Simulated scan of single mutants.
Amino acid sequence: MTLRVERDGATGVAVVTLDRERRHNAVDLATAAELGRVWREFRSAPDVRAVVLTGAGSAAFCTGIDRDVRVPQPGSPYSVDDPLVAIGPKASDLWKPVVAAVNGMACGGAFYLLGEADFLIASDTATFFDPHTTYGMVSAYEAVYMAQRMPFGEVARMSLMGTAERLSARRAHEIGLVSELTAPGELLPAALRAARTLAGFPTEAVQGTVRALWSAKQAALQQALAQAPALIALGNLPPERQAELFTGRRQAPRPRVR
Rank of each mutant, 00 (worst) to 15 (best):
V5R: 05
V5L: 13
R7L: 14
G9N: 05
A10V: 14
A10G: 11
T11L: 05
G12L: 10
G12E: 10
A14T: 15
A14Q: 06
V16D: 03
V16L: 14
N25G: 00
T31W: 03
A32D: 03
A32I: 04
A33F: 06
L35V: 10
G36Q: 11
R37P: 02
R37L: 04
W39K: 06
E41T: 10
F42M: 12
P46R: 03
D47C: 02
L53S: 06
A56N: 04
A56T: 04
A59P: 00
C62T: 00
C62M: 06
R67D: 12
V69L: 10
R70K: 14
V71D: 08
Q73R: 11
Y78M: 09
P83H: 06
K90W: 12
S92E: 10
P97M: 05
V98W: 03
V102A: 01
G104S: 05
A106V: 05
A106W: 03
A110D: 00
F111H: 04
L113Y: 00
G115W: 04
D118W: 09
F119Y: 14
L120Q: 00
I121K: 01
T125W: 08
T125G: 03
T134D: 05
M137D: 03
S139P: 14
Y141V: 02
Y145Q: 10
A147D: 14
A147T: 04
R149Q: 12
M150R: 07
P151N: 07
P151I: 12
F152G: 02
E154F: 08
E154Y: 06
R157T: 07
S159V: 09
L160W: 05
E165W: 14
E165R: 10
E165S: 01
S168I: 11
R171P: 01
H173E: 13
G176A: 08
L181F: 06
P184W: 06
P184T: 02
G185R: 13
E186W: 03
P189M: 04
A191S: 08
R193T: 10
A194G: 07
A195Y: 03
T197L: 13
G200T: 07
P202A: 02
A205E: 15
A205T: 11
V206R: 03
T209S: 06
V210L: 02
R211M: 12
A212P: 06
A212K: 11
Q218P: 00
Q218K: 11
A220V: 13
Q222R: 15
Q222S: 07
A226N: 12
T247K: 13
G248C: 10
R249K: 13
Q251K: 13
A252V: 14
P253L: 02
R254Q: 15
V257F: 15
